[in-house]
Design a binder for these strands. Structure first.
Lengths: 114, 114
DNA sequence: TCGGTTTGCTAAGTATTGCAAGCAAATATA
DNA sequence: TATATTTGCTTGCAATACTTAGCAAACCGA
């Protein structure tokens, strides 16, 4: 995993693009791209990876994983009508009692504001 | 959220943890955590966010989005004018301000019975 | 009250991301 | 051949993530 620079270079060359072409489209300097491809960059920022993923047509997740960032779990359950998952999702794990109190408090907040 | 430092602080206090407790579990210095919570850090690394997400029991995705990193594409993800993920995707109809209030109230709840 | 411990914070330092400028070799154009 | 342009690369720099060391106030038991 030391040499994902080669991987980025392969992606670019597969698209027959020059460093300066990628620079223009991704708004990332050709200097930095060169460093990236020669293994002199350890962990490019998620934003940079996101731009490159769009240009090269590979998934953002894949690039995140390539450079060693934790990758979000896919099976995250995220939606609920009752609001339980939703509140825990934003506030952290909570007990049923706490959930009830929070929902009541949320109601209080909203009535107060009116 | 402009100052997500408050959010991280609320998460920690809702768990009744000290900076040094989080430091131990996350292997992130208490000094840096303090800077993070007081808004002196712009974009903590994905690895740091991942560790904190596990300790605080919130989703890694949520923290990534909070600090402004691109989040992996999801099926029906819709962007609002502000660029943030829309309410339709976000679970529950909870604003950032409400979220902070809920976290602070949760902290109150948990300290109350001691 | 006193001495130790806890807690949050700041200061200073290291390492890395990413950029602007510019160099050297290859390639194109005359 | 001679000149200009393209291409990848290196150097020096600013910004920032993150650490170690340590300070000041609050806390706590004797």
């Amino acid at each position: 995993m030391q040499n994902y620079g080669d991987y980025f270079r392969a992606l670019r060359e597969a698209k027959n693009m020059t460093l300066r072409e990628v620079e223009k489209q991704a708004d990332v300097s050709n200097a930095y791209l060169s460093q990236l491809e020669s293994g002199k960059v350890k962990q490019p920022s998620p934003l940079t990876l996101h731009k490159l993923s769009e240009i090269y047509g590979v998934s953002y997740d894949l690039l995140m994983e390539k450079v060693g960032y934790p990758v979000p779990e896919r099976k995250e359950k995220v939606k609920s009508e009752s609001g339980k998952t939703s509140i825990a999702y934003r506030v952290g794990d909570i007990s049923d009692d706490e959930e009830l109190e929070l929902l009541n408090y949320l109601k209080f907040i909203r009535n107060r504001k009116k």
